[in-house]
Write a protein that binds this DNA or RNA. Structure first.
Lengths: 164, 164
DNA sequence: TATTGTTATACTCTATAACTATA
DNA sequence: TATAGTTATAGAGTATAACAATA
């Protein structure tokens, strides 16, 4: 697929390679978890829920910096797969306590395995010490650019601040 | 925007950072060229046209591995901006010879400047020798993963092979 | 009949805003 | 009235397929 346009010396710097490789990595990972019925956008959410049992949807939305209605859709999909449960909070019936099901926990384990396989394959061109160097350099760039460490690009949102 | 979900030790390996930083880099570059009326998906096309004057749209589609109708839309946008011209080939009136206008050449220059600024900012956390190391490592990963050097992720397509 | 380019249609993902129910 | 969650609507971007013009 996609031959290289001939007759054009392409830039080979990191700034050009990053979007290319980033999209590639995301695609490969997506392929690996697709059989589980999951997409990358679900993974961060699953992880969050597994670590913050019974959070409210509002909390999730705030934590990821997205609108509540976005969370609704994602949770619908996860609930459809039986990986997540919404329970009305008896104390304040407006709140939903979101929890992982047993299936959800199992799915998260499989996602973790898929990620390790993916990682191995993606970086197989490099020795482990080179992989570490790469990770360090990327982490420094990420930090300087103000990227928060745990947030997957799938949760980008424009609403950022203020009024809905 | 998008706080880091608390209580969760995030993976910090290259495989996790790549999609995150790749998306970030793409977004930042997109912001820089947006004032020109351009998006990342236009850039590779502009560059191709500048190096292969009077190509046919079919050739472009083949080179980028996308369907011809995709090229139509992109060229419509570039023509709208006055950066590109389609000329009917008198020899075979089915073909359109695509050329950069003077404005198109100027735009491409500005895009190049924008890219340099972008690159400087994006990698400012690293020394130049570290930037070179990063580029080398990324290039090796890209090559092993079968990524062709000149193709921007904006041109990904699923049709890959065979029959339309 | 085969090929180039175009148009029309549909689908995915997400953002925005209106709405319901609780409080 | 204010807040949690939901539903409805709309928009961007792209894939797919039907189509017209030309060969």
């Amino acid at each position: 697929m996609a031959n290289r346009p001939r007759g054009d010396a392409p830039p080979a710097g990191a700034a050009f390679l990053l979007p290319q490789l980033g999209a590639h990595a995301a695609d490969r990972f997506a392929e690996r978890i697709a059989p589980l019925g999951l997409a990358p956008r679900h993974v961060g959410l699953l992880r969050w829920i597994s670590h913050n049992s019974a959070t409210t949807q509002r909390d999730v939305a705030t934590a990821f910096g997205v609108r509540p209605s976005r969370i609704v859709v994602l949770l619908d999909e996860l609930e459809e797969l039986g990986l997540v449960r919404r329970e009305v909070d008896p104390a304040d019936r407006r709140n939903r306590a979101v929890r992982l099901t047993t299936q959800g926990r199992r799915a998260l384990t499989r996602v973790g395995q898929a990620f390790l396989t993916h990682q191995n394959d993606l970086l197989s061109a490099l020795t482990s010490s080179e992989q570490a160097t790469l990770a360090t350099l990327l982490a420094r760039v990420a930090e300087q650019q103000g990227l928060s460490a745990g947030v997957h690009p799938a949760y980008r949102d424009d609403h950022a601040s203020g009024h809905p």
